[in-house]
């Protein structure tokens, strides 16, 4: 089975303060494939966070269906099992770490699963090692940089051995170095451990490294495809209020000025290669 998460015609409404409902998702149909890195982008309020919270049963569908690894989110009995399959990392690391000791925080998830002690120790060792955090094992998260804190949060999810990790704007609070650390580690876990990854982000430079991307707007999926395909449609991307990756933006600007670069440019390396080909 190729699909890990299958979503069919999902709608979701929030009740707002005045009592009237706000539609966050308006008939979304999509899939997350096993082993891929999927980026979900869109402006604030486009519904991407609401969508992602259905992936591990934090929200239950208003209507429509969400099937995670063969289990329906609509059925409350599946909630515990689904949360073992899909882990979630949130934007602000400070608001998701529980303990004042790194190792204890990483153990929090496995402890909740009721695993035997030896297995918890094994998993904590493994998760800390995978993210290169062993040196901080006995430290307090308060003494770490924001990027390292976010890695601890990822280690905490990793220790639960999920098939899929959903990251909800994990780099929004981080400095450039922290952003790079987190992204590199996310890509490495996807590559080495085969963990399906869903990355919610505003940064088009992060999307470039993903296998597929989904662009959301007003509770609907507007575009789906490989980043290279979608960024070729610069006008459409801009109409949805999003930017192009930096290199693609430059190529697009040059094209508007009458200089069309050869090739379909997404990364700095491609831009350099393409510029060097100019006569």
């Amino acid at each position: 089975m190729k699909t890990l998460i299958e979503i069919t015609d999902l709608t979701y409404k929030y009740r707002s303060g005045g009592g009237n409902a706000v539609t966050a998702l308006n008939g979304v149909t999509m899939q997350v494939y096993r082993g891929e890195i999927l980026a979900i982008t869109g402006q604030n309020g486009s519904g991407k966070s609401t969508l992602a919270r259905h992936f591990n049963a934090l929200l239950t569908p208003g209507s429509g269906e969400v099937i995670v690894d063969g289990l329906s989110v609509n059925d409350k009995k599946n909630t515990a099992a689904i949360r073992r399959i899909v882990g979630m990392v949130f934007q602000n690391p400070d608001n998701q770490l529980v303990s004042s000791v790194v190792e204890e925080d990483v153990a929090f998830g496995p402890e909740n699963l009721g695993l035997p002690q030896a297995e918890i120790v094994k998993r904590v060792d493994w998760a800390l090692k995978s993210l290169d955090l062993e040196a901080y094992r006995y430290r307090s998260p308060n003494s770490l940089s924001e990027g390292q804190k976010q890695l601890v949060a990822i280690a905490g999810v990793l220790a639960m051995k999920p098939k899929c990790i959903v990251l909800d704007e994990p780099t929004a609070h981080l400095d450039p170095k922290g952003k790079r650390e987190v992204l590199e580690n996310v890509q490495r876990l996807n590559r080495d451990e085969g963990i399906t990854t869903v990355l919610l982000t505003h940064s088009m430079n992060e999307v470039v490294h993903c296998d597929r991307m989904i662009i959301m707007d007003q509770g609907l999926i507007k575009l789906t495809g490989a980043p290279r395909e979608l960024f070729a449609q610069a006008e459409q991307i801009k109409a949805l209020g999003l930017d192009l990756p930096a290199a693609a933006q430059l190529a697009y600007g040059l094209k508007l000025k009458g200089l069309t670069l050869p090739g379909n440019i997404l990364t700095i390396e491609e831009l350099v290669a393409s510029l060097c080909q100019l006569p």
Partner: peptide, 26 residues
Amino acid sequence: KRAEELIIAMEARSYTGGKHRTKMKT
């Protein structure tokens, strides 16, 4: 606000209260 975010993050990490929990350290 922090408390609310923390609750969601804890729930996402399968926290359902003290029952069925085990401990890494005894």
